[in-house]
Design a protein around this nucleic acid. Sequence first.
DNA 1: GATGAATGAGTATTCATTCAT
DNA 2: CATGAATGAATACTCATTCAT
Lengths: 214, 214, 214, 214
Amino acid sequence: MALAGATRARRKAERPNEILEAAFEEFALHGYAATRLEDVATRAGVTKGTIYVYFESKERVFEALVRERGKVARERMAPFFEERGDPTIDSIRADLDFLFRACTGDQREQELLRLLISEATRFPALVDEHFETVFDPILEKLKERLQRAAKIGTIRAAAVIEYPELLMSPALAMHVCRLLFAERWPLDTERYIETSVDLLLNGLLPDAPQRTRK
Amino acid sequence: MALAGATRARRKAERPNEILEAAFEEFALHGYAATRLEDVATRAGVTKGTIYVYFESKERVFEALVRERGKVARERMAPFFEERGDPTIDSIRADLDFLFRACTGDQREQELLRLLISEATRFPALVDEHFETVFDPILEKLKERLQRAAKIGTIRAAAVIEYPELLMSPALAMHVCRLLFAERWPLDTERYIETSVDLLLNGLLPDAPQRTRK
Amino acid sequence: MALAGATRARRKAERPNEILEAAFEEFALHGYAATRLEDVATRAGVTKGTIYVYFESKERVFEALVRERGKVARERMAPFFEERGDPTIDSIRADLDFLFRACTGDQREQELLRLLISEATRFPALVDEHFETVFDPILEKLKERLQRAAKIGTIRAAAVIEYPELLMSPALAMHVCRLLFAERWPLDTERYIETSVDLLLNGLLPDAPQRTRK
Amino acid sequence: MALAGATRARRKAERPNEILEAAFEEFALHGYAATRLEDVATRAGVTKGTIYVYFESKERVFEALVRERGKVARERMAPFFEERGDPTIDSIRADLDFLFRACTGDQREQELLRLLISEATRFPALVDEHFETVFDPILEKLKERLQRAAKIGTIRAAAVIEYPELLMSPALAMHVCRLLFAERWPLDTERYIETSVDLLLNGLLPDAPQRTRK
DNA sequence: GATGAATGAGTATTCATTCAT
DNA sequence: CATGAATGAATACTCATTCAT
């Protein structure tokens, strides 16, 4: 009984997240408009009405879901924000490597991107919020590091420094391809990342024969 | 009267494209599911029923629209497929420049990407078709040129050659950002493209001090 | 030219009937509401618009068709109305035999019945008209003959004389079964008619004093 | 409140039948195609959506309705299937009398027939099902009794024995007339039935050697 | 809290009818 | 006359949302 009580309480506390998780899968699969809240409920193991106990409307479910994924993303990205002294070639390589792997490691990352792109015109404020709390900090941090690296001559002081999104583009491209073709687009992720980092680093380096690459 | 006289037949021939154009705008704005065919009709200057004179269903309208955009894209890309001798640094730069501008010049290009991403799970065959007839030929051509360039030493023979999509990723990234943030993301396209090409070229070049950039 | 002219004129004169014939088939197959005038047109070898050249509306087509079938039925029944002296057993048998065959010989007779039954609530006046011009004269004639036959003792003077429809009921029953089961209800028409006539005649005959009835 | 309290569950159990009853009336009045589910709903005292809580589609409503009427018919016919010894003239008269009254007593019987006839081409399987579970058992039973009656000499051993539907035809004819003319065809049911039974019995009886038939 | 019956606004699609050619 | 493009009223069906239990 006590156990059952605890279980029920635990269940209750987890319900919202279970619903959001289920909602995420359904929304990613069918898009906002074509997703039926009833399917979300079924997937979450509850009934239609229960969703309305925790959320005001379909829109609020969607917003909560995006915010939840944002939180997850921020947590995953945390290591990137730790301070480490002056950037070296290797630290930049490590940074890129980390970023690529971080936003590539979880299929859900990709599906969130699909949702953001699909529903950007319906939820512009939400997309902005996600940008400001998730993407922008990363880009800003990256920019800051690149500027410092350029200043101390680790990389060349080219315009690229102003476009940190340029460095992220290989990861983005991979996401987009996966969104479009799913498993029909087989890719050796490992090698792709390596190649990308290699290309970018090579592009960033000042004119120097010492370039090392695997 | 004279105008009306010409109208009948002329309209008949133009209607389908007018409808597809209107459909494109509506679908891009709201996604497949949330688009009302009646709004498409209104935008095209006809009524609901007229759409069904030319198309069997909402799905067929969507498919026709994607195919039409594919045709437009192929036409725009035609110059890229013309033969020109051995690739030089400048010809590669010109190629990248052309590609970036081509897939960036028309806002509709971007919106088509949104549709493809949004509806990829609903219309997988259609996305594949678009890939095979539009994206793939470009990537293949690009790959071929890079391989040749590597063989004659114009660029280094790195793994990047196998990932032509990597070279397209800055353009893709730009599209995605625009899709997410629209005008809220101001960007000097010109400079972004230049920077991208510069970064990539620099990354592609063999170890050489002579790297010229504008 | 003259020939073509004649042909065209002939075609034109026949159009309405061709349309009615096609309409009959479609209406019988799908009922009034579910029949598309366009299908009628196609079956008649013309286009939608042409129907409206000859008929005001779908309703008018239906009415015209029923009237046309009424005319055909009257023509087929004409021999029944010819005068022949006092009824004998054999003449009554011949009458029943004729009636059964007449309303059984053409599959369209049956289908008309389906239409009348299906649309009786939508076109009550039309059904009444058909009754008055087609069914009723037959029943009246039959009644008259039976009364005369009873008066001269050819058949017994039972209440049946007042219900001529009773004598028609085997034919009606056959129609209904065919309407319900089509070819899934195989029937030796010849034998069925014979048996019916036999049963009815036997029932009509006088004599047999031992027969008790309430 | 107490009333309302009971309502919920009670209504739930009764709803489907209330809907079917309403549907029956509407379908009988307008036919399948011309019936609006919304009118059915209104007549049943619910709204459009509620119908879809209980039935998948308009077709399913129609099918359920026919099956329900079949059940009702079987229950009404049950007494006919009880065993009673060797058939006498009186038992056969009683059988016919019962059958005629059973399929005549309820106006809905007639309207079901209209539906079956009207929609036989749209729902052939459903009509067959109704035949097999409702009509056929009656005809078979009737045939069986007639054969037995013929064997023991109660009636003559004529071909009529093979056509039990022939004996039902007066009832069918009455139905059809009612379907076609409704109240515009006044009929003393009682007398009609009596007359029919009389005619048939007379036709079935043996003897009367002077009767000639082909 | 959780349920699921009931609601009704919303949308794709059909088709009789019109009318310019 | 014949055509068939265009119309728009009509209708099956869906699904977010409510609320009595």
